[in-house]
Simulated assay, not measured.
Amino acid sequence: MPKSMNPLQLVADRWQPSAQVVRRAAFACVVMGVVIVVTGGAVRLTQSGLGCPTWPTCTEDSLTPTPAMGINGVIEFTNRMLTYVLCAVVGVAIIAARARSPRRRDLTRLGWAQFWIVAGNGIIGGITVLTGLNPYIVAAHFLAATSLLTVAVIMWLRASEGDDEPRDLVPRPVRQLGWVLAVAAALLIVAGTVVTGSGKHAGDAKKDVHRIPLSYREVTQLHVDFVFVVLGLTVALWFVLRALKAPAGPRRRVVELFVVLMLQGVVGYVQYFTDSPEVIVGVHMLGSCLVWIAVLRVVLSLRDRGELVALPAQTATDTTSPLATAGR
């Protein structure tokens, strides 16, 4: 496509957003990534997984839910519509990253990666409905949403950094310990999907939904074991950083992760000993997002990529941008 015909280039020719605007647009993607996970959980916890019994329409004859479908149809359809809100937020982030000068190709790629993950996960969501809430497809749907959150967080954090080659702030073995922590946390999340798939919240009270044929108590114990592994690695990383007199940033990120893990642990134990009430399960899903965000912040804090290159002059259009006044 000729440069003059590229709509993103046309926007870039007329609007030069500040680094702060790009960061806020990227942060909005993080927020929406969390929202889509939590609202997806709400669909399951309110037994609305088949509130719209088919896909892409809500029924065979209607795009939207009918009055006879009740609140479950409304909840499921609302969750579907949030996908379009998410696409709009990601679109704004892509435009802001593309219009930024000097151009940051990595940020634009991360924005487009989110778009394609959203599109792919929309298809997975449709398959989830068409297969009657198959627990393995439901787990894949959640993990795809977590992948979206991962890319959104990376884009948000990269928007605050420069483009220098990564420089280790700690010795290489310590960075490797950070990656081990990230892998353990990822396995913790995967184990959580197995707990959900074998538990009582099938997503639809009107149908005998297939569950993963594993002992709920045993897979819950496995999930708890991973919690202790992640917690142990977090404590170990903090002691190593302290002994090495590492910069304050990485140490602060590890403390933040420890606090989030402890709070999530409390929620998890309350959930287990109260037989998984819906509200507590929903809070636990929110906590899983916050834990993963905190883990990514720890890993990326162990290296430095220099300072952002500032614009030589701020354009007047930036101050009038809707994102210029948005909260971070």
Results as ranks from 00 to 15, higher is better:
D168G: 11
G192A: 03
D275T: 03
V254T: 01
V235D: 09
A191S: 15
Q264E: 06
V194F: 14
A243H: 15
L188G: 11
L181N: 10
F239G: 07
P247M: 07
V260Q: 02
R253E: 04
V283S: 01
G199V: 12
L241S: 10
T274C: 07
G268W: 04
L187T: 10
T220L: 08
V281I: 08
T196F: 05
R242V: 15
I212L: 15
T220V: 13
T193E: 09
L233D: 02
A186L: 14
A248F: 12
L237M: 02
H284F: 00
I189N: 13
Y272H: 02
A184Y: 08
V255A: 02
V229T: 10
V235L: 07
L233W: 06
M262R: 01
A185T: 02
P166R: 14
R172Q: 13
V224Y: 08
R167K: 15
G249Y: 05
R175F: 15
V190R: 11
L222R: 13
L222F: 12
R217D: 05
R167A: 15
R175N: 10
R242G: 10
A248N: 05
L214I: 01
A205W: 14
V224S: 10
L237P: 03
L233I: 01
H223T: 06
G268Q: 00
T234K: 01
V259I: 09
A202V: 15
V180N: 00
L188I: 12
G162W: 10
G282P: 04
V259T: 02
V219T: 06
L233P: 00
H210W: 15
F258A: 09
L169Q: 13
D163P: 11
P213F: 08
A184L: 12
V266T: 11
L187Y: 07
I280P: 05
L181I: 04
L244D: 12
T274L: 05
R253V: 04
D164G: 14
V259S: 00
V235W: 07
T274N: 12
V255Q: 02
D168I: 10
A191P: 08
V209Q: 09
K206F: 15
V174M: 08
V255P: 02
V230H: 04
S198M: 08
G203W: 11
A243Y: 15
F226D: 02
H201Q: 10
D168C: 14
F228S: 07
V174I: 12
R253F: 07
H210Q: 13
R251H: 07
Q271G: 02
R253Q: 12
V235S: 04
R252Y: 00
V170I: 13
H223F: 04
